[in-house]
Structures are given as structure tokens and as C-alpha cells.
Amino acid sequence: MNNEFYIGWMPKAPQGFARHVKRVLLTILPVVLLTGAMLAWLQKRFSTASFEFGKLTEVTGVYFKDPVPMLRVNAGNDIWGNTSYISIPLVGYGKHGANGIIREIEIEHKTSLDHKQVILKGTLLYTDGRTIMQVSSNEIASVKIVPGRTAETATVQKDLGFRKVKGEIIDPKCYFGVMKPGEGKVHRDCAIRCILGGIPPMMHVWNDKGESNYYILVSSTGIDINKAVQDYVAEPVELEARLVQYGDWTLMYVADMKNIRPISSLQLFRPASTIIACGTGCTQ
């Protein structure tokens, strides 16, 4: 029997022990390191969404309180010479909607901002050709209301009828670049907290080419849609609702929570890419 014996308080390990430990460490350490490298390599690809953290952009546009706080911004003329607009939904700082900060601005300026042309400074977030903007209380002082200028034309609306789509309810602030990932189970708590904080929920859907589209969820019955969707956030769902084209965004008017149905993630699996495919009736 090998009579070697070693306790950690001894000054030196016997040769047999030392050799054995070296062998074990030389095996374990590279294995653990390679495992870590493999895990890092196999992670899902991060989205290309962008949050311009630390960069403020001044945007001029007409503020609309409903259906969700947003700025309608003049984007120049289209090829036919008509004025075109893009709408930028607004969100607040942290996990909050924009209503709080807009209220603060209105108190500061002693007037309602609704339908007025304003100049706001905020941080832009964008993905898939869509932009939203974060406004925070630090920028209240820089807000300007253009005197006498109100919305000259109403936002173009078009009823698209009832549709059934499959996708995931997201909080757009995180999904548009604040968090990566800003979707799925790992992000669920954060998404719920953002939506309960007033950030408008959106339905994210994909078509069979893997292209994304985003529908802003609003209530058609006056219920608190943010609270009502809590149990369905960040998981695959099928949703049937009336779609209304609202400028360059599409709204989904949810009449009844029974129209939201959890579905298997396999029904959304998109083999060629990071996620998912669109269900029947999906529109772009």
C-alpha cells in the first residue's frame, strides 16, 4: 500500500499526491475552459437592435396622447410630393411609460401637449426600421412647445379587419435595444415589469421569410391592456383582434382577453433564423 499521506497544513505534498493533482488540474481546467468557450459560442445571436445610450437627439413633431403617447414627425415628401410622416412612440426612463414624464412637462408648461408641435430631446431606440424614443425628466427643461402649431391633419387610419396572428407580446423598450435579449423566457420578468410600468405592449410577429412586424396593443373596451396582458408576456401566443393601420404603425384593438391564447413554442419555431414564423393571417 502506498503510505503517502497529505493534509493541507503540511508544507509540501508528497510526490504522488502532487503528480496526481497536477494531472487532474491539467485535465479539468482545459475542459472547463473549453466548455465555457463553447457555451459562449453557442449562445443565440444577439439582435441588431440599438439603444443610443448616452446620446440625446432632438426631435420635432406633433405629440399625440392617444392611442399611445407618440410623436408624429414630418419625414419630408414622398415620391408623389405628398408629405410623409413617421410616428415615434414615446417611453419613459427605466421601466416606465411616457405618461408620467409628459404630465411633468405639461405641469411645467401649464398646458396640454396633446396635438401640439413640440421639440423633445430623448434617446432613440430602433430595430427593423422602427424607432421609439425614451424621454426622461432630465430633459424637461429643454422641451419646447411651438406656439400656435397644432396637428394640421389627423393621422391616416385604415381598418384592416379582424386577423389572427402568432407571435410574442414584448415590451418595445427592451426589445428595441435596451436589453439583449429583450424577449423570451429569460427576459419575461423585465418585460412584465416594463409593461406594468406603462410601456405600451406590442405584438411581435414574423412572416415566413423571417421578417418582423410590430403591432401596438390597445384596448377596445377601456380595460387596462397593460395589466390584462401580464400573463401572456414573453411567451408564444396567438391573438385575434381588429387591426387598424395608424400612420406607419398598426394597432391591434383587443376586445377580450379570451382572444389571446398561449401556444406551443414549436408553433413559432423558425428554423433558418433566431426565432419563429408567422401564423396564418399574418400581415406585413
Partner: peptide, 24 residues
């Protein structure tokens, strides 16, 4: 070892997943 592991993980992520965020 911890330093090497963390550096390797961050480096591999940065190389193969350049859109990463540091928090994640």
C-alpha cells in the same frame, strides 16, 4: 483560472456575437 475563464467567455462572445451587451 476565474480570470481566464471570464476573459475567454467575454472574448468569444465579442468575436462571434458582436451585438452583445456587457450586462448580458
Amino acid at each position: 483560472f476565474c480570470c481566464i475563464y471570464l476573459s475567454t467567455f467575454i472574448l468569444v462572445t465579442a468575436i462571434f456575437n458582436p451585438e452583445y451587451t456587457f450586462e448580458t
